[in-house]
Simulated scan of single mutants.
Amino acid sequence: MTKITSPTRTQRKAQATRTAIIEHAESLILEGGATALTLEIVAERADVAVQTIYNRVGGRSALLMAVAEKAFEENRAYMDAAYRTPGTPLERLQVAANGYFRFAMERPTAFRLLADPPNDPEALLRVSELVRHQNGKMEAAITDGIADGSIDPGVDAHLATTSLWAAANGILSLAWRADSAPIEAQMMERLWAQWMAIVIKGLYPKS
Score class of each variant (00 low, 15 high):
residue 169 N to Y: 06
residue 40 E to M: 12
residue 176 W to H: 15
residue 61 S to E: 14
residue 22 I to L: 02
residue 107 R to W: 00
residue 188 M to H: 07
residue 120 D to Y: 14
residue 67 V to W: 03
residue 58 G to C: 08
residue 7 P to Q: 09
residue 99 G to M: 08
residue 193 A to H: 09
residue 101 F to Q: 06
residue 136 G to M: 01
residue 128 S to W: 09
residue 48 V to A: 00
residue 189 E to I: 04
residue 186 Q to C: 00
residue 107 R to D: 00
residue 7 P to H: 04
residue 39 L to T: 08
residue 93 L to N: 06
residue 138 M to S: 05
residue 41 I to Y: 04
residue 113 L to V: 07
residue 116 D to E: 12
residue 41 I to A: 11
residue 12 R to A: 12
residue 29 I to D: 14
residue 165 W to Q: 13
residue 85 T to Y: 02
residue 73 E to W: 03
residue 110 A to V: 13
residue 159 L to A: 03
residue 56 R to C: 04
residue 83 Y to D: 11
residue 176 W to P: 07
residue 169 N to V: 03
residue 48 V to K: 04
residue 115 A to I: 10
residue 93 L to T: 09
residue 174 L to R: 08
residue 117 P to Y: 08
residue 200 I to M: 15
residue 90 L to A: 05
residue 40 E to W: 05
residue 50 V to H: 05
residue 99 G to W: 03
residue 206 K to S: 06
residue 124 L to M: 07
residue 49 A to I: 10
residue 174 L to A: 00
residue 60 R to S: 10
residue 202 G to L: 05
residue 71 A to Y: 08
residue 98 N to L: 12
residue 196 M to F: 11
residue 100 Y to V: 02
residue 102 R to Y: 01
residue 147 A to R: 13
residue 197 A to E: 12
residue 58 G to W: 07
residue 58 G to P: 13
residue 34 A to F: 06
residue 139 E to D: 11
residue 195 W to H: 15
residue 14 A to I: 00
residue 166 A to I: 09
residue 77 A to I: 08
residue 45 R to L: 13
residue 105 M to N: 01
residue 123 A to W: 02
residue 102 R to I: 06
residue 179 D to K: 03
residue 60 R to A: 14
residue 169 N to P: 02
residue 16 A to P: 11
residue 204 Y to R: 11
residue 135 N to Q: 15
residue 184 E to V: 04
residue 50 V to I: 15
residue 33 G to E: 04
residue 54 Y to C: 06
residue 43 A to C: 02
residue 92 R to W: 07
residue 33 G to I: 14
residue 74 E to N: 02
